[in-house]
Design a protein around this nucleic acid. Structure first.
Lengths: 210, 210
DNA sequence: AGTCTATACGGAGACATTCTCCGCTTAGTT
DNA sequence: AACTAAGCGGAGAATGTCTCCGTATAGACT
């Protein structure tokens, strides 16, 4: 679960830094507890039974009534995004750790590989989230910004070290990696090789071996 | 719709060349007609209302009863794959035309762009198909082989012309392109640029301008 | 053409899932 | 301790999925 932060939305989610939402009342303790439980339960059920799993099962696993589930997450989509968002906060935190502990190229590639892994272990989940995108726009924007921030902190050193060429933008890299990850869900072993192709395409000039 | 071929399966689909299935009885004329109608109707409905659209609506649009729909396509997945397969047959035919009418590099990139377009105009559809993959394995294998064959006919000349480096395998290229396409569904304008990055990663050695 | 039979059709209805509504409970405040 | 706004839960309506089986017809055979 996400840590308790200073600025949070009504859903008790950290507000993307730099964005100031009108401050809403904090949730009641039981509501916040249930919100957390639902995210946890939903993640488990989605991983076990895919993103189509019956929502009532999730309510049961979280030990709340269906009404409560639908109050917190009015649609299946919002629940998927809720889980996704929570996951990305973890992934983002890992980026910062890698940036501190590894040299630029290794840190970058390691993080991109983490994302491959993430998608791989949640078959169909990322595809489902991707298919939403349009709806749930604000939450997805938050996710994008989060990932973008993390990647930039890895990408800048990599550029400085001559691993990645200068013009490359973070959102493009994210999309490339997510694309590879989704395309390789069903052939996980090939992911690394494809990722190498992609990284090759982002290197400055000479580079690469055949 | 797919053309009428010599070797067909019970579903009236061309058998992948080189693969010999036990020849099954041909379908009755009305059954074949309904099969075709269902594919057409399903494509329209899926494009209009997404891959979650009610199946009964599709039956209605095809002017058949729900029973008939479920006889031809026992699950939503099988219907999605049916449409997908039919689409890919078109896409595959286009590859051959491009190979004849354009120089290697242009033919290859043009076809890859066609795929970008295909995915873009069917939001969520490709993601849904991808999420299936595991189930519906035989049909998906047919699709893979079809696309693989088409791409090889474009890739070999491109390799010979020094556009693509030697070790690159067709399935990898397909996955990369599908990945990019899915990742860019919601940002179609960026697709071309990302595709260029990917192609850059597949070029021989010196190449590319910054 | 007429007859026969395997194949396919269609839709009523059983079943499953989604989602809402509203009376009851409780956290947090005074 | 009492009050009130926020939140809970589950019954049940609405929607969608999928099956079963009586009816219709394509195609074969005469």
């Amino acid at each position: 679960m996400a840590r308790e932060g200073a600025a949070v939305t009504a859903d008790n989610r950290p507000v993307p830094s730099g964005v100031s939402l009108p401050v809403e009342k904090p949730m009641r303790a039981d509501a916040r507890r249930n919100h957390g439980r639902l995210i946890v339960a939903a993640r488990e059920v989605f991983i076990e039974h895919g993103p189509e799993a019956p929502l009532d099962d999730i309510a049961k696993r979280a030990a709340v009534g269906p009404g409560t589930l639908y109050r917190h997450f009015p649609t299946r989509e919002s629940l998927l995004v809720g889980v996704y968002q929570d996951d990305l906060e973890t992934l983002s935190a890992q980026a910062d750790k890698l940036a501190e502990s590894l040299p630029p190229e290794e840190a970058l590639t390691a993080w991109l590989r983490l994302q491959l892994d993430y998608v791989k272990h949640r078959r169909g989940f990322s595809a489902a989230v991707k298919a939403i995108m349009g709806l749930e726009a604000p939450a997805m924007n938050y996710c994008r910004n989060l990932m973008r921030g993390s990647l930039i902190r890895l990408l800048e050193p990599a550029k400085a070290a001559g691993v990645i060429r200068a013009g490359v933008e973070a959102p493009d890299v994210l999309r490339l990696v997510h694309g590879v990850a989704m395309a390789c869900e069903s052939a996980p072993d090939d992911g690394e090789r494809l990722l190498d192709y992609v990284i090759d395409g982002l290197r400055p000039r000479p580079a690469a071996t055949d």
